[in-house]
Amino acid sequence: MIISVASGKGGTGKTTVATNLAFSIGADVRIMDCDVEEPNAHLFLKPEIEEKSIVFTPVPEIDEEKCTFCKKCAEICRFRAIAVMDQIVLTFPELCHSCGGCVAVCPEDAISEIGRELGIMEKGRVNGIDFAHGKLRIGEAMSPPLIRKVRSSVESDKGQLGEKNVGKINIIDAPPGTSCPVIAAMKGTDFVLMVTEPTPFGLHDLKLAVEAVKLLGIPAGLVINRADIGDDTVKEYARKEKLPVLMEIPFDRKIAEVYSKGELIVEKMPEWKDKFRDLYRQINEIGSVKSASHKEK
């Protein structure tokens, strides 16, 4: 089971929900912080980091001795990461999306792939929870390959769950927004838990995120954070979209204080542990019903 926690709008409480959910379930849980531009789940979980590795993405290197300046590599690159002029070839590694097209089309075998550093990945454990996150290198713009690396390090491909993965609950803390990094974090997950707030901004970005989730065809449910502020438009929208509201977290001073100290709500306010366990139970129900009906098709 892979649950991704997404939101559209930033700052709605994705990490709060992801970390407290992980801690409440307890055993056989993995959490992957895929918000690699600004990972923060570690601030709340405080895992002991056991492993650290540098993550690279392949970019082209051209052997000018072999290159005949035929331009085939430049023509196939939709990101314009290679420019070929008369007797000159230039690469722009920061524009490269590592598709390997240039290597495949080069008739002279003049292109090889070298690694460009994207950032680091760290893995560790806390209270029986497996933890992993990525940290994007400062100045780097290309996060999806790092997100995929963080996911693949702990989660096997969907449909090919290895034995060690059976029964494991994987929770992905996704980045905000609806662009490539979010898709990289949500794609192939069994359930998307969307966290929003009942404000016009929250609703606006939620709608965009729901459209993205629909395209991916993943079952989803909603957590409304700071549920007693704002208005009812988020709930009306959820009703219309048949998006179940699985949990509401009030705008509570004590919750805010716990959060501001980098602590978990479920630890400091134990009454929340059952609520988060119930949230998981609901996700599990919806997830298994949906996947069963999916198989029937």
């Binding site: 939709r78 990101f79 314009r80 990461a81 420019a83 722009f92």
Partner: peptide, 8 residues
């Protein structure tokens, strides 16, 4: 162009 208009 999506990206790299200047390069092109």
């Amino acid at each position: 162009a999506f990206k790299g208009a200047g390069i092109q």
